[in-house]
Amino acid sequence: MLEVKDLRIKFISRPDKYAVDGVSFEINDGEILGLVGESGSGKSVTAMTISGLLQKSLIEFEGNVLVGGKEMLATDREDIHEMQGTDIAVVFQEPMTALDPVMKVGPQVEEAIRIHYPEISAEERKKMALDAMKQAELYDVENVYEKYPHTLSGGMLQRICIAAAIISKPKLLIADEPTTALDVTTQSHIIALLKKINKEQGTTILFISHNLAVVHALCDKVIVMQRGKIVENGSADEVFNNPKNDYTKNLLASIPSRDKRY
């Protein structure tokens, strides 16, 4: 599904170092891959490259990113626009700021359909949005559809963002720390929701997080990044129970253990 080959990214504003330095990995159809690492290790830059959000004029890049066999790096803007919102969808860390503040949330869920399938009628589109919102486990969707973002809670907004992401049945869903801004209970609900979407729709997910415990609960495979490089790569159980790399061991040690938490 997703294949990243020897990806190197350097920002022109910071020519002294690679933000992503020779990263290679792949995700098979229907898998959930966890990407962990400390702040500044290059997780978001990797995700932004895959989703085509990085402005080419600001970076130097090498390597390949193949989404469903299509190259993301060398393609021109038009083709990337075509893939965004259809093949690839993204959920952000901050649901509070991710939505347009002056637009009702319902029409925002429809955005990808409105852009990519103009032939679909307004009523049909609204039905799709309500469906997606139900799949994102929102209740009273007819009512929520008419709300503005500032009237909803963080957890509900993140569900709206997820609904907006899955409405077009993307092949690859990138979730960049989707739960970091939420409280613990909501966090676990959102994780469960992502797992459900993955199971029911077979959506491939790239899940980025600081939180190794969450990653272990959700993901099939895990990649650990440090300073732009991959330092550990394996199945979630392998990495979690039997880390080979010292850095991963430290990351694991820094998680409060489940027994001690309360």
Binding site: S51, L53, Q84, G85, A98, P101, E111
Partner: peptide, 24 residues
Amino acid sequence: NYVKLAKLMGAGSFRIIFVHILPN
């Protein structure tokens, strides 16, 4: 962020400028 998200949905520049940003 809302502009980034609109871009990620494949919205073109004119849609982003006139439908999303101007009302804000």
